[in-house]
Design a protein around this nucleic acid. Structure first.
Lengths: 258, 258
DNA sequence: TCATCTCTCGTACGCTGTACTGGAACTAGT
DNA sequence: ACTAGTTCCAGTACAGCGTACGAGAGATGA
């Protein structure tokens, strides 16, 4: 999902140890070293507990103390498995992206790209907290790169210039994330906070009664009257098809030009 | 930018007072009531100070204590102007969206929609913290609705069914937000934390040397070798044109069908 | 057995948002 | 000019957060 830019190897660069540790934890899961006291938990237990909490309470409800409590462990014990909250989140994201049901390399580009988009869409429904992460740079994580690789692969043999492949996958990612944000996560939030659903509705109704000025917003009123806002079906599939159409146009153009 | 859904007025619904207060603060700015002690600050001072801090330090650097310190005022004094941090953020967002340079109603749909998208794009460059807000529902704020009204207005007379107008504006919003997230904010973050740029680069290089497996990610390697990743020019304009093309197709289809 | 290593976790520090409260400053009415 | 009414100011305090530190517990290799 993230836009990543491979760099040539450069051995002369100093490496801050916390960066190295962070990456090592993701790419080389630690093997238990016989010696010393036995661990009560595994790294996966910790990541799983964090995910469970974030799934139900959102990212703002995820605290080290809560994770520890769920595992019936002292708060500071977590820090033997994970350097800190940031790295825990990295691992949670990796674990979540590993769940993606990615299309096979053999799929034709349109099917593959649609499946790629839907897989992410469903992932964001299961784990809406991913959309709450800062995410203007997903972590450099195995599963995240697997997904990225898959997305690029669907288009790399279509004749499009490489730069445009990157651009299109980025556009698709932006689309899925953005739409998931305004649609999926909303309902998840409502479910989580129980009465929040009513409260939100109330806030809306209070707004329309007290503050909405039809003269200031005539277009919205007109669209409302025409029923344009009550879209019980999410516009995901329709918008996706539109997007894929435009990708098809770009491919045709590229093939015509070569 | 948000997807809003007007509801019919319903006077029988109870209204939680904090919701009413929150909306009132946004829509009916408080007039000073002659009586009592004179205020040292205005609401706008507080919102401005908050915006200034968020612009330079990001949203995680915005705390009530810092805002108060910048205004040379006790922390608790802020609470006479603003019920809490949440509402301060609402006001900051409203103020930011008021800066949008929206296209006139007379513009042809393609120019208008492009200007609408670019205005948001530039706004997110000036105030990247907006992208950090939860934002799976922008606040019901005058300026936010102005923007939404403008976006819908550009398409409402093109012959598209109302539902599709809403869908397309939503898609465009998602696109701009998503791309801004992965592009704009990244550089802003680097500027803010100074050495973070080097550090990030270092982390990358460390990654490519130690962990990247070309056999696992052949497509990424291939695209990298072809120079597909070194896009110094942001793909915003190119992707926007592609998106507008697909909107044009939808409009032609709608006109042909009617 | 004992040194060594690793995991466990209580305590503590600095940060956050904000409830409460007493006091300061100002105006309106008399 | 005085008082009553009203508003703003801010110190203190509390619960929650991430996590640095260090003492103790449990396991292993020599």
């Amino acid at each position: 999902m993230s836009s990543t830019s491979p760099q040539p190897p450069d051995d002369g660069v100093p490496r801050p140890p916390e960066v190295v540790r962070r990456l090592a934890l993701l790419w080389d899961p630690p093997q238990p070293s016989g010696r010393g006291r036995r661990a009560r938990l595994t790294l996966d237990d910790v990541v799983g507990a964090g995910t469970a909490i974030a799934d139900t309470e959102g990212l703002e409800g995820l605290s080290m103390r809560k994770v520890a409590a769920r595992l019936e462990v002292g708060a500071m014990s977590l820090y033997t498995y994970v350097p800190g909250r940031t790295e825990l989140l990295d691992l949670m994201i990796d674990r979540a992206f590993a769940e993606l049901d990615l299309p096979p390399a053999t799929a034709p580009w349109r099917d593959g790209l649609a499946a790629y988009a839907r897989a992410h869409w469903e992932l964001f429904q299961r784990h809406p907290w991913i959309l709450q992460t800062n995410m203007w740079r997903l972590p450099l994580t195995p599963s995240v790169l697997d997904a990225q690789e898959c997305g690029l692969r669907t288009l790399v043999d279509t004749g499009l210039p490489e730069r445009q492949v990157v651009e299109i996958v980025g556009l698709l990612d932006a689309f899925v994330r953005g739409l998931a944000r305004s649609t999926v996560a909303e309902s998840a939030e409502k479910d989580a906070s129980g009465q929040s659903n009513d409260e939100y509705w109330t806030s809306m109704s209070s707004f329309w009664v007290d503050h909405f000025d039809p003269r200031r917003y005539p277009t919205m009123l007109r669209i409302w009257d025409a029923g344009g806002f009550d879209a019980e079906a999410t516009p995901f599939e329709a918008s996706l098809e539109r997007l894929l159409d435009s990708v098809g146009m770009a491919i045709d153009r590229a093939r015509g030009a070569s």
